[in-house]
Design a protein around this nucleic acid. Structure first.
Lengths: 185, 185
DNA sequence: ACCTGAACACCGTTCAAGT
DNA sequence: ACCTGAACACCGTTCAAGT
């Protein structure tokens, strides 16, 4: 053996840069390799294959979403809004890469961080324990759908911030209703 | 000139079949051409290029969503549920193709049909006119996000019907609140 | 007008070889 | 252990040619 010229981390970093600059279509084993000044085949030892590279990217995206640390003890409305904004920023930076998050199991390890943060926010709002996971899923699904729509261009021509405000207000309405126990049926 | 061997309609039909059977990755100009027993280059006259082919596909998907005719005068809850189910069926049939709908402007011609149907449903529920478009957008965004999550595998391991039920109930709650005018301030 | 055939510049990936 | 180089079976698309 001899010192490694590149690492998995470097490969993912380079790919993320490439994706942000030129989109997912430009993410090719050969282009990533060129960016690292290495042969395409050199990547295979570090990421397995193209699919492995893509998996590594969404893993990274998840991790980026997972850092709302700042908004920790503030009120639940601010926490939820901050997390939603976080997701939107990522979606705008990697518009087509973002779509791959829909192919990632929501229950996975990497998604634990943000989910627990949302749970805490919902608990502090008074949402009953047994409704936490369903409500969290509803919220994240809406946020993902919104971010994908915004980044993908589905919302082109609309006042996106106004739409976001409307959605955020409706979500808060649902959380408050859940806290009152209106979801019982 | 001489009689056309293939038409745009046939090309899209063949591609949709191919996509349903083998996924978007298998949708290649060459594979579509082979299915029609024609040279790859023969497609270009009918769909422009690969992007044109893809555009034609999402156009078709939109059209498939647009046919909830049956549930016309029944109650608004049934109409909304039927439309959501419609979208979910399409997403399951074309899991990766479905993601392309996020890149399609929501305000486009092809989306008019389903949107007007939702408007009617919301009106009959008592939702004020000025809130129609925002609420419809919130609903469709959630449904798209849900369908993409289900089809993409994000919801793997969950009781998806139960999740859908939960979401549907929350949506109805929002519609009822809007009808009462709770969204004002 | 519509289709074919050969060609070009790309892909991901294998395999044997170098250090 | 890590990287290279040549090769293979694919892509989308151009261009000139056939009917």
């Amino acid at each position: 053996m001899r010192p490694a010229r590149i690492s998995r981390t470097q490969v993912l970093d380079a790919t993320l840069d490439l994706a942000a600059e030129a989109g997912l279509a430009a993410v090719t084993m050969r282009a990533v390799a060129a960016r690292l000044e290495v042969t395409p085949m050199a990547l295979y030892r570090h990421v397995g294959d193209k699919q492995g590279l893509l998996d590594g990217l969404v893993e990274r995206l998840m991790a980026e979403i997972a850092v709302p640390a700042e908004a920790k003890d503030t009120d639940w409305r601010a926490v939820l809004r901050t997390m939603a904004d976080n997701v939107r920023v990522i979606a705008r930076r990697y518009p087509d890469l973002f779509m791959l998050l829909f192919q990632r199991r929501a229950v996975t390890e990497g998604a634990q961080g943000p989910r627990q943060t949302v749970y805490r926010a919902l608990r502090s709002a008074g949402v009953p324990e047994e409704e936490l996971s369903s409500l969290e899923r509803l919220l994240s699904t809406l946020v993902y759908g919104f971010a994908a729509s915004e980044a993908g261009g589905r919302f082109a021509g609309l006042n996106i911030e106004a739409e976001f405000e409307y959605g955020a207000a409706r979500i808060e309405q649902l959380v408050e209703a859940a806290a009152r126990g209106d979801s019982a049926g």
